[in-house]
Write a protein that binds this DNA or RNA. Structure first.
Lengths: 241, 241
DNA sequence: ATGTCTTTGTGAACGCGTGCACAAAGATGG
DNA sequence: CCATCTTTGTGCACGCGTTCACAAAGACAT
């Protein structure tokens, strides 16, 4: 996923495998729900089911954090919420800037899931002068000329890019130069970043294309496994249109 | 990522590994850009660099599709665009419904990346009667009561869920019952689906939390590896910049 | 035709992630 | 205090994905 920094020891983050890190937010969400229902403890089986994973995997994941469970009983919900939050760094406040206030940028600015987990929209930035000063989600949009100042004064280290593809790399470079070291990229572009900068990519078009691939296969299987096989392989892909 | 169907043979899709499928859209995008610049052929090295991957990986990926390259020369851009498009099922038209027309749903409806790759927004659906009839991205929003009819008459097999978390599972079940077999879920919920249905999940909050984790580690390393144990563990990753 | 040079296609080794299966740990009841 | 029962924590094996490194294939010049 990430473009920068993916070729590093990877799993060396204090020994916590990347795959485990990616699941921690999932567990945290399930645990938060339990906490709101005042459930005191939960077994690996129950929690795994709520998070949509296998219980052995969950136990192994937690084992990387330490031994927080009690055999014969399960895990203390509140304690685990705290431990995972701490591990993920959610006990502190993360100011975030969103660059590119189009439909998607506005949607993100309005997204409630941010504030609830230690993230705070510190600024909205757009290149269009007509947008400057407009209120989006209760925050005034600022012009991209002020990007560096905004990053510095706000102590921002996480940036979200929701610009068109063409502008993404340039925006990325300015963000990085100003001190941002983590980027969430929604633009359909491969970002090139220096060592030490993390990039995660979310690409709607790619997700749909992957679904289409499987959808096509299912449709083909349905009508007798027509797509793939080797009746000599190659020409079978009928493709009427 | 996907919740349903992840425990199947996985790589059995006519022999194409899942990891490769996930990269094909990336290659396709890079190739399309080359095609627009009328570049006739491209080497694995160049294309890999444009797609942000390793050239050996790219060659192995393509080898699953067949031998479409010419040794000493490289790959024919147009031909490869066609082959990958066909493999991904993008030579046909995929009608898609979006359920939940809030900020995010509207943003997706307006997203240009859909139409360009064989996807067509067939309908926008929302549970709020006040939304019914409103035009979003030039399409009239329909009420969720008509969901089944819309799916059937439109021959829709791909659904995008952008509802609040609480409504997602129910919407999902209705979509599946109506015949949808691929779902792209933006709601912060683990969807449970029957065998044969593919679910892919996009979760903004999770992506940010993963970034926060790495950000915290970088900050800790900077000030002398204060966060995580073991003064004898991994101090070597100095990472000066 | 032959040799050289470029680039593909792939066999093989390695490493990460997953899941099984069980021993260790603790709770609980008599 | 002991037996039993539940549930965690983990050693181990297996499989997928990545990467290396090189032989085979073709282009191109002479």
């Amino acid at each position: 996923m990430a473009t920068g920094r993916q070729h590093r020891p990877a799993t060396r983050s204090r020994g916590i495998p990347e795959a485990t890190v990616a699941r921690l937010p999932l567990y945290l969400r399930a645990l938060t729900a339990l906490s709101e229902r005042s459930v005191p403890t939960v077994s690996s089986e129950e929690l795994a089911s709520a998070a949509g994973v296998n219980s052995a995997k969950l136990r192994k994941d937690f084992s990387y954090l330490g031994s927080y469970g009690t055999r014969g009983v399960g895990y203390d919900v509140e304690y685990l919420v705290y431990q995972i939050s701490r591990e993920l760094g959610l006990t502190q406040d993360w100011p975030v800037v969103i660059v590119g206030i189009g439909n998607l940028g506005a949607a993100l600015a309005n997204y409630g899931g941010f504030a609830s987990r230690g993230f705070r929209v510190a600024a909205l930035i757009d290149a269009d002068p007509a947008m400057t000063g407009k209120q989006v989600a209760g925050i005034a949009v600022q012009h991209v000329d002020d990007l560096e100042t905004i990053i510095h004064t706000g102590g921002v280290s996480i940036g979200v890019i929701t610009t068109p593809g063409g502008a993404a790399q340039q925006v990325c470079e300015r963000l990085v130069a100003a001190g941002v070291t983590s980027i969430l990229n929604f633009a359909p572009t491969v970002l090139t970043v220096p060592e030490g900068v993390d990039v995660r990519k979310v690409d709607l078009s790619i997700e749909l294309q992957i679904l289409a691939f499987h959808e096509q296969r299912k449709a083909a299987e349905e009508m007798g496994g027509q797509v793939g096989r080797e009746p000599g392989d190659g020409e079978q892909a009928v493709m009427p249109a």
